[in-house]
Amino acid sequence: MKKAGKIILLVLLVLIVVGGVIIATTPTKKLLSFLAPEIDNIRVTDTRIGEETATMQVLMDVKPSLVSTFVDSVAYQFKLYNTTVAQGQKSFERDAQQQQQTIKFPMTMNHNTTRELVRRQVKEGEKVQAHFEAYADVPFFGRQKFDIDEDLDILIPALPGATVSNLKISDFGLDEMEMVMTMNLDNPNAFDFYIKDMKMTLNFPGKMSSVGGTVKDYLVKARSVTPIHIPAVADVKNPVKTTVKTLTGDQVWPYHMTTTMVLEPKSKVVGTIHLDAVKTGEVNVVQQVKNILETKKEEKKAEKQEKKEERQRRKEEKKVS
Rank of each mutant, 00 (worst) to 15 (best):
Ser224Ile: 02
Ile169Thr: 12
Thr83Trp: 05
Leu80Glu: 01
Gly281Trp: 05
Asp186Asn: 15
Ala277Tyr: 11
Glu299Cys: 02
Val164Asp: 00
Pro157Phe: 03
Asp276Ser: 08
Ser165Met: 10
Leu12Arg: 11
Phe132Ala: 09
Ile292Ser: 14
Phe146Gln: 08
Gly161Asn: 05
Leu35Arg: 06
Leu10Trp: 10
Lys104Glu: 14
Gln288Asn: 07
Ser68Lys: 04
Glu303Ile: 02
Leu202Trp: 03
His229Pro: 00
Gln288Leu: 04
Phe92Thr: 01
Glu299Val: 07
Ala75Tyr: 13
Glu298Ser: 14
Gln312Met: 10
Ile148Asn: 10
Leu117Glu: 12
Pro157Lys: 00
Val71Lys: 06
Ser170Ala: 07
Arg119Asp: 05
Leu15Pro: 03
Met208Ser: 15
Glu317Tyr: 09
Lys221Pro: 03
Gly5Ser: 13
Leu263Gln: 08
Val270Pro: 02
Leu15Ser: 09
Leu247Lys: 08
Val236Tyr: 09
Ser33Asn: 05
Thr163Met: 09
Leu9Met: 09
Thr248Leu: 12
Leu31Ala: 05
Asp276Thr: 12
Ala96Thr: 14
Gly88Phe: 01
Arg223Met: 15
Gln129Gly: 08
Glu52His: 14
Glu124Pro: 02
Phe70Glu: 12
Lys307Ala: 12
Ala134Val: 11
Gln288Tyr: 01
Ala234Cys: 00
Pro64Ser: 01
Val164Pro: 07
Lys304His: 10
Ile103Cys: 06
Lys297Met: 08
Met181Gln: 10
Glu38Trp: 05
Leu159Val: 11
Glu51Ile: 04
Thr108Trp: 08
Asp149Phe: 06
Leu185Tyr: 06
Pro64Arg: 05
Met261Ala: 15
Thr260Tyr: 12
Ile49Ala: 12
Asn41His: 08
Ser165Trp: 09
Val138Lys: 01
Phe132Leu: 10
Thr248Pro: 05
Val17Pro: 02
Thr248Arg: 11
Met208Gln: 05
Ile23Leu: 13
Ala232Tyr: 00
Asp137Phe: 09
Lys30Ser: 13
Phe191Val: 07
Ser224Asn: 13
Ser68Thr: 08
Met257Glu: 13
Val138Gln: 01
Gln288Trp: 01
Met56Ala: 09
Asn184Arg: 03
Glu282Asn: 12
Lys290Leu: 13
His131Val: 11
Trp253Asn: 01
Lys6Ser: 10
Gly173Cys: 02
Val71His: 11
Val14Thr: 09
Thr182Val: 10
Asp149Val: 03
Ile16Phe: 08
Val118Cys: 07
Lys145Val: 12
Gln287Leu: 05
Lys318Ile: 02
Tyr255Val: 04
Lys2Ile: 10
Pro64Leu: 05
Asp151Cys: 03
Val44Arg: 00
Glu51Arg: 04
Gly5Met: 06
Lys297Trp: 02
Thr53Ala: 01
Glu306Gly: 07
Leu159Ile: 13
His131Gly: 00
Val236Pro: 07
Leu13Met: 15
Leu155Cys: 07
Met177Tyr: 09
Lys300Asp: 04
Gln98Pro: 04
Glu38Asp: 13
Gln57Tyr: 06
Asp175Lys: 14
Met179Pro: 03
Thr182Pro: 03
